[in-house]
Amino acid sequence: MGVAPITSNLVQTGPGRIRYAPLATAIPTFTPTASKFAPTWTNWLDVGSTDAGVTYTESTETADIRVAESKYPVRVVTTSKSSRVAFVANEISDLIWKLAMNGGTTTVTGTAGTKMTEYAPPLADAEVRVMLAFQSNLDDEIIVWPQVFNVGSVEYVRGTFETKAGLSMEWNAEIPSSGYTTPYKRFTTGALSLAT
């Protein structure tokens, strides 16, 4: 039996860029040129560098419908679904801190060498949702999550001299009240587009 042919341009590697924006920010128009995306991300901000890029996980919980006359389920039903986006941000600016904490308030005083930012986290039920997007390093894949909420435990690691600090985040995708009717949309071009 021969080895199955390998379509090397479908083997994806490398990180990408993670962006975020307030809810209801305009999502760019994605028009590929020469099998690349080059959208203008107006009012979106870069998360910056991460520990290990981004991990997207989609989970489906199911239940078996059984009858006494069969050892196998007669039907499997979906009981819940979740879409999660996780990463550890390494560039710990005030904006990234606020992003990880689901909002809060910042007060800036002073200028230049006397500038100081004071941050107060949001209380329970005062948190805010944001939008997230990922664009691959080859500019041939974009995923947009129009509404996410950080549900993970935020860990701020400050260790030994060679240990870089990081803010861990795990976002649960929600279906927004308007716009998208799904928790995310994925856009591809080039070899990835309608690949079989």
Rank of each mutant, 00 (worst) to 15 (best):
K71S: 13
Y20H: 09
T29F: 02
T109E: 10
S178G: 11
W97A: 07
T13E: 08
T107M: 04
S49M: 10
V85F: 06
R129Q: 13
T189I: 04
V47L: 12
E174D: 11
E127W: 08
A173K: 07
I27G: 02
R186F: 00
E162C: 01
V88I: 09
A26W: 00
I6F: 00
L123Y: 06
K81Q: 13
T107Y: 02
Y56C: 04
T105K: 15
S193R: 12
V151P: 04
P32M: 03
I96M: 09
G179W: 09
V154M: 12
E170N: 13
Y180V: 09
W41A: 10
T114Y: 07
I92V: 11
F149W: 12
Y72K: 15
A100V: 04
D51Y: 03
Y72I: 03
G16A: 02
E61N: 15
T117D: 00
R17I: 15
G16L: 02
V11H: 03
T60R: 11
P176H: 03
M131V: 06
E69H: 06
W171T: 08
R84E: 13
A4P: 09
P22K: 15
G104H: 10
A165M: 13
V47W: 04
M101T: 10
Y56L: 10
V74Y: 02
R17F: 11
P73Q: 02
L10Q: 11
A133Y: 04
I18N: 04
S82A: 09
N137I: 13
N90A: 07
V11D: 02
T60K: 12
S178A: 11
I6E: 02
T106Q: 11
M1T: 09
S70K: 14
A34K: 13
A100I: 05
L95H: 01
N102T: 05
L45M: 12
T62S: 08
G2K: 14
D139S: 15
D140G: 08
P122R: 01
T106I: 12
A38W: 00
A124N: 07
E127Q: 14
R84Q: 15
T33P: 00
T57P: 07
T62P: 09
T188C: 04
L132H: 01
V88C: 07
G110D: 07
E69L: 15
R158P: 00
L123Q: 13
T62G: 06
T189L: 10
A63N: 11
G53I: 03
P15T: 08
Y56R: 15
V144H: 08
T107F: 02
Q135V: 05
T181C: 00
I6Q: 06
G113S: 12
M1P: 12
I18P: 10
V128Y: 04
T111I: 09
P32Q: 08
V157R: 12
T33S: 13
